[in-house]
């Protein structure tokens, strides 16, 4: 099993993802420079958070032209797992690997804090665990997910909504939504369920010392899937 963490100029959660996978999950992981192609033997590619290309133009809009994105699309087509976290999610949207787009948080401010997310599906490679509410941090200025008029129904129909912002008890309410995203969406998968984009940061909560270890459940699920 081999995982890769892509480094774009301006990525800043690359080392955090690398650390969580290597030191906490104890799996083999490499950094993949954005200007190169990813070899065919990666089972999972992580697009980390940060400000690729300084968020110039639009979040993720330039990074999606990086050479490595061709191999990411190719690996995705072959069914390998792709996980985009925060800026990684924004890049996946810009690359057309997931539907929808991001606009600025409804407060127009960057928000960094712990939130709760409800796990809507357990039958994906990323969410094969029983806990239904995760305590997990967000840190973004543009996590307000939007999609065209038919989008929400289609996402529902194909069970693509994986995470929604919720209260600690699991209620999906307006108050629990930190950024104004439609349907409280915090993370979605593609129809094939091998690409996940999520705004919250599982790598920031994979050790209890950091305030929560719920993020580890997502990495464990990925590793279980890849080991099977």
């Amino acid at each position: 099993m081999k995982l890769g963490v892509v480094v774009f100029p301006g990525s800043n959660c690359d080392t955090d993802c690398f650390y969580a996978l290597k030191e906490v999950m104890k799996v083999a992981v490499d950094y993949l420079w954005h200007g190169e192609q990813a070899r065919d033997d990666y089972d999972c590619i992580i697009l980390p958070g940060g400000f690729s290309y300084g968020d110039y133009l639009r979040t993720g809009a330039i990074a999606r032209f990086s050479p490595i994105m061709r191999s990411v699309a190719e690996l995705a087509r072959k069914g390998r797992l792709i996980l985009g976290i925060c800026n990684g999610f924004q890049i996946l949207l810009e690359a057309g690997l997931l539907p929808g787009a991001m606009v600025r948080n409804i407060s127009l401010q960057f928000i960094c804090k712990y939130v709760n997310i409800k796990v809507e599906q357990n039958h994906t490679p990323f969410s094969n665990f029983s806990k239904s509410v995760l305590r997990i941090p967000i840190a973004h200025g543009q996590g307000n997910y939007v999609i065209d008029a038919h989008g929400p129904a289609e996402l529902e129909e194909h069970q693509q909504i994986l995470f929604r912002y919720c209260t600690p008890e699991g209620a999906v309410t307006r108050e629990a939504n930190p950024n104004g995203s439609i349907g409280n969406i915090a993370g979605i998968v593609n129809r094939e369920r091998n690409i996940l984009g999520m705004m919250p940061h599982p790598e920031r909560c994979s050790e209890a010392q950091l305030g929560s270890a719920d993020g580890k459940l997502i990495f464990e699920s990925i590793i279980r899937y890849l080991s099977a």
Binding site: Y19, F110, C112, P137, H201, L210
Partner: peptide, 13 residues
Amino acid sequence: YEQYDHMVQTNTV
């Protein structure tokens, strides 16, 4: 401080 990323680098205990 919620406008500042205070968690990146995963060292903030």
